[in-house]
Amino acid sequence: MDQHLMTLLPHDDGPWLASELDIRGISKDARRRLLTTGAILRARKGVFVRPSDTRQRSAAERADVRLAAHVRLTQGKLNPAYLYSHTSAARLHGLVFLRDSALIHVSCHSKPCAQRLGTGVRAHFIPVPEHDRLMLHGVPVTSLERTVIDCARILPVEDALVLADQALVLGADRRVMFERLKGMVGYRGVINARQVVELADPRSESVAESRARLLFHQENIPAPVPQWKVMTHLGQRYLDFAWPEEMVAAEFDGMVKYFGDKPTDRALYEERLRERHLMELGWRFVRLTWSDLENPFEVRRRIKAALRPHTASRGGPNRLSPLSEW
């Protein structure tokens, strides 16, 4: 391996344009040698990365690299023939996916040749009005509202709802989305898109909570209130989902809650302490995990059982509370 060429490479992992490597003294022939030895990889025509940037990353991170490589050839161009849309626009807006895909989506003003777009790119030839276009860090993308609609037209409802919830948190306007949908009657997937926009809720704080909300809806479980605020003697506490009249809460136990910044034992202790204070106020809990969402029937059974009238046994001041029975 040519160590001199290795020292000329940028210190970051890329992606780098061929022109940027030329400036650093890495000519076309030199790039060919580096490619042959595996010192660099071609992310797409004219764009290169370090091998570690693709082989040691998750599927989502690899998809980020592929899109970043494609964007490098678009960034700064005046009046490009396309703009990034659908899931690619969602990625550029910073949205997190339930299921990831490395496919790049663009919406074209006209039909550019496939060679110019590159491999792994899907072109959509549908009109994107000026008010649905914007420049994001110098990259042409669809607006948040249009991005949600486009994603909801091609993705399963569950995947699209995860994105729509996040978009509302970032400032997407639901009224604008409904207005856009009025002008898309007859478009493929527009019925799904309308359902996603109707169900979207910015109060969901994670992908799991978005999935759970959809499950409740599909299983005809009475709609809970997300992020219900409860005052305890230690201050305000929030419940992931609450049915306040029944004093029932559904809480999602995710890995981040117990394996985030805090030590696991500390996180578990604080979570159980929080739950105890809420139980002392009469709240009853149904705890859900990611795997539970794969068994909707069982989730429905557990929650509907908890929502049934809870009768305390009689016997004066020492009778069992609903909490004790739970």
Score class of each variant (00 low, 15 high):
Ala81Asp: 13
Asn79Thr: 09
Arg287Pro: 10
His233Arg: 09
Ile149Met: 12
Lys45Phe: 11
Tyr258Asp: 11
Met177Asp: 09
Leu239Ile: 12
Gly38Glu: 09
Leu117Asp: 11
Arg33Val: 07
Val71Thr: 05
Glu179Asp: 15
Glu20Val: 01
Ile23Asp: 14
Pro224Leu: 12
Arg272Thr: 06
Gly316Tyr: 13
Arg174Gly: 09
Gln3Arg: 15
Val162Tyr: 02
Asp29Ala: 14
His93Gly: 06
Glu20Asn: 06
Met177Tyr: 10
Ser52Thr: 15
Leu78Trp: 10
Ala160Phe: 00
Asp265Gln: 13
Ser58Glu: 05
Arg211Val: 12
Ala30Lys: 15
Pro112Gly: 08
His277Met: 11
Leu199Pro: 00
Gly171Pro: 12
Leu95Gly: 01
Val169Gly: 03
Ser52Asp: 15
Arg308Tyr: 00
Leu323Val: 14
Glu158Phe: 03
Gly118Ile: 07
Thr87Asp: 03
Val286His: 02
Leu281Thr: 06
Val196Met: 01
Arg302Gly: 07
Asp132Val: 05
Met6Glu: 15
Leu34Asp: 10
Val225Met: 14
Ile303Gln: 01
Ala123Ile: 03
Arg319Glu: 01
Leu163Ile: 04
Glu246Gln: 08
Ala212Asp: 03
Ala305Thr: 13
Val256Glu: 13
Pro263Phe: 09
Arg272Asn: 05
Gly25Trp: 01
Leu67Val: 11
Val128Arg: 07
Ala312Arg: 10
His70Asp: 02
Gly76His: 07
Trp326Asp: 03
Gln75Trp: 10
Ile40Val: 07
Ala193Met: 08
Val106Glu: 00
Leu323His: 04
Val96Leu: 03
Arg203His: 06
Leu273Tyr: 10
Met135Lys: 08
Val185Phe: 03
Val185Pro: 00
Glu219Asp: 10
Asn192Phe: 03
His86Tyr: 03
Leu134Arg: 13
Ala242Lys: 08
Ser210Met: 04
Arg319Asn: 04
Ala250Met: 14
Phe259Pro: 00
Ile149Phe: 04
Arg55Leu: 15
His137Ile: 02
Lys111Asn: 09
Gln115Lys: 11
Pro226His: 11
Glu20Gln: 14
Val49Lys: 00
Lys77Asn: 15
Asp64Pro: 05
Phe48Arg: 01
Gln3Glu: 06
Val286Gly: 07
Val196Trp: 08
Ala63Cys: 11
Gly316Val: 13
Gly94Leu: 11
His109Ala: 13
Leu134Cys: 12
Thr311Asn: 08
Gln227His: 14
Thr289Ile: 12
Ala18Arg: 03
Leu34Gly: 06
Ala30Cys: 07
Ile126Pro: 00
Ala69Leu: 02
Arg33Pro: 02
Gly46Gln: 12
Gly138Glu: 07
Val121Asp: 00
Val162Asn: 00
Thr311Ala: 05
Arg44Cys: 08
Leu83Val: 07
Gln195Ala: 10
Pro80Tyr: 02
Glu298Tyr: 10
Lys262Ala: 04
Ala200Met: 14
Glu198Gln: 03
Ala60Asp: 15
Asp240Ser: 02
Glu61Tyr: 08
His11Gly: 07
Pro156Lys: 08
Asp165Trp: 05
Phe259Glu: 15
Glu275Phe: 09
Gly183Glu: 11
Leu293Met: 13
Thr7Ala: 12
Ala160Glu: 02
Glu205Pro: 04
Gly94Val: 08
Pro202Ala: 06
Gly254Asn: 06
Trp326Tyr: 07
Leu320Gln: 13
Leu278Asn: 04
Trp326Ala: 02
Trp16Arg: 01
Arg211Gln: 11
Gln115Phe: 12
Arg180Thr: 05
Pro80Arg: 04
Met135Val: 13
Tyr238Met: 14
Ala193Arg: 03
